[in-house]
Simulated assay, not measured.
Amino acid sequence: MAENYSYWISTTLLALLYLTSATMYIVKGDFVRKAQADLGYSASHLVPFMIMVKVLGPAAILWRFNVALSDLAYAGIFYHLILSGLAHLGVRKPKGAIPAAAGLILLVASFATQNSAREILSPYAPAAAKRQITLNQWRSS
């Protein structure tokens, strides 16, 4: 039961982090473009793409209409958070990496506990992988 709560709390907070960020990209577009330029990115066409990613990624995880797509969203968010944190650290602005670090913690908690809260199990979550290893050991004996 605790894993179930852990999944829903971490997933909801991760989705709120991403939706808040997408809202900021929409409302304060000029500020976001300047902040990205300060990080060394000059692609202004990146902002609409990131808005779409920041909305669709959490949606794929929350609605989970396709397990493979949900797992792909977890991977995409993982890489986005790693690259975001490294971009801030690369320009020596460690305070800017704090949301990425918090997002990584929420992402790991959500991914690790997803099979306890969902009917269709992800084959890549730790609990499913452990059951598969145990099942394979049982079959080989």
Rank of each mutant, 00 (worst) to 15 (best):
H80K: 04
I26K: 05
L89P: 12
G57P: 00
F49M: 05
R131Q: 13
T23N: 11
E3S: 15
Y18P: 00
L86C: 12
S21Q: 03
I98Q: 04
L121D: 14
Q132A: 14
S84C: 00
L39F: 03
S21L: 00
L14R: 15
T12K: 04
I82N: 12
Y41R: 13
A2C: 10
Y25P: 00
A128G: 13
L13W: 11
A127K: 10
V91G: 14
V27I: 12
A129I: 04
M24Q: 15
Y7V: 07
M24F: 15
Y25S: 06
S70G: 05
Q114V: 12
Q114F: 02
G76P: 15
A112I: 00
S116G: 14
T11K: 03
L39C: 04
L62N: 05
M50H: 02
L19Q: 13
G29C: 00
I51F: 01
A97F: 15
L135K: 13
A60N: 06
Y124T: 02
A112T: 04
L14Y: 02
I133P: 06
Y41Q: 15
F31M: 03
A101Y: 13
L14I: 07
R118L: 05
K95I: 09
G103F: 06
S10V: 06
E3C: 13
H45M: 01
L62P: 08
S140F: 04
G103P: 10
L106E: 06
S140K: 11
A87N: 01
L69R: 03
G76F: 08
L83V: 11
D30Y: 06
S110Q: 05
P94H: 05
S140Y: 06
R92T: 02
G90A: 09
A43K: 11
T20G: 15
N66R: 08
S44M: 13
L104W: 09
H45S: 04
S70K: 12
N4E: 07
A125W: 05
A73M: 11
S42N: 12
L121S: 11
I105E: 01
Y124I: 01
I133Q: 10
F78L: 14
K28D: 10
Y74I: 07
T23L: 11
L16G: 15
A128R: 11
A37K: 07
R118I: 06
A35V: 03
Y74R: 13
Q36M: 15
E3N: 15
N4R: 13
A112G: 09
G76S: 09
I9H: 10
D30C: 00
Q137R: 10
V91S: 05
T134R: 05
A101Q: 03
E119Q: 08
I82T: 07
L86T: 06
M1H: 14
S122Q: 09
G40I: 06
K95D: 03
A112H: 10
E119Y: 01
I51W: 02
L17Q: 08
G29P: 01
L46K: 14
I77Q: 07
A112Y: 07
L62A: 09
H88N: 11
